[in-house]
Nucleic acid binder design. Structure first.
Lengths: 136, 136
DNA sequence: GTCCTTGCAAATAGTTTGCAAGCCG
DNA sequence: CGGCTTGCAAACTATTTGCAAGGAC
């Protein structure tokens, strides 16, 4: 097959791998521009989508519009702040994770996503809604 | 407090309660128009959001753009088809549900959402991608 | 009368797509 | 070369917001 490599693709993947913040496409785009000033937003979207298809990243759908991406494809739990939308990893209870894997096999499902709702520390202290939607 | 009731609000809630299909705002809108031809889409969005704030409905965020709503607020599992985006209820394993409730209490989280990925029967037979994004 | 709600239209926000040009192998 | 990839701009889709008018209490 021809022309399957590109600096852009590699950069996007490296940027995504370098963070644990579950960034949005836009955030990845901005970080990529530090290295490749000419990169286009569409390229970032296209490649993130490709990474997901290839199983090298996952997409996390939360409210607040933006989709988030994560290069950590090992099954793990997430928390989402209902106020600012920030996504974080949280301790993944092994027993529950095993049980979920079991359910998948038993029922023929392809995977699971477990998200806990948790007002994040920032929003807890600010106590005001919609001040800052996490700009990740 | 003044003027807190409206036929629109009530209709939207009834429409949502009457289905198990986890509809999008647009679908609820179309159903409401059968009864209230003059209702506006913005009204549907506003009230669905209100129902969620009041804890009378939940919002399910999946890929494929549209958010889905559900008037069934009892904790339960969902499946999402990765091809057409259809959301369905699935048997909620009591043991796992209890474990998740436990995790929430232990960690101080406000709730959980468990979504399994499952290619739905329709998409399984069609075997082609992006033919029809479930028009719910 | 006052505050809440509505319908409409316009505005946003996030994401996708068409296309001509460029790079990989 | 031939096919995959890119950047740009325009197109789209879903959702939100401003506002004047109507309804609830």
């Amino acid at each position: 097959m021809a022309g399957n490599y590109s600096v852009q693709r590699e950069t996007i993947y490296q940027v995504l791998k370098s963070t644990k913040t579950h960034p949005s496409a836009d955030w990845v785009y901005r970080r990529c521009r530090d290295v490749l000033p000419g990169i286009g937003l569409a390229t970032v979207y296209r490649n993130l989508e490709l990474l997901v298809e290839q199983g090298r990243a996952i997409k996390i759908n939360v409210a607040q519009g933006k989709d988030r991406y994560d290069a950590d494809v090992t099954p793990h739990f997430h928390t989402v702040c209902p106020i600012c939308g920030k996504v974080s990893d949280c301790d993944t209870d092994g027993v529950i994770a095993k049980a979920l894997d079991g359910e998948c096999e038993r029922r023929g499902y392809q995977g699971w996503s477990l998200i806990f709702t948790d007002v994040c520390p920032d929003c807890r202290s600010i106590k005001q809604i919609k001040i800052s939607r996490s700009d990740q």
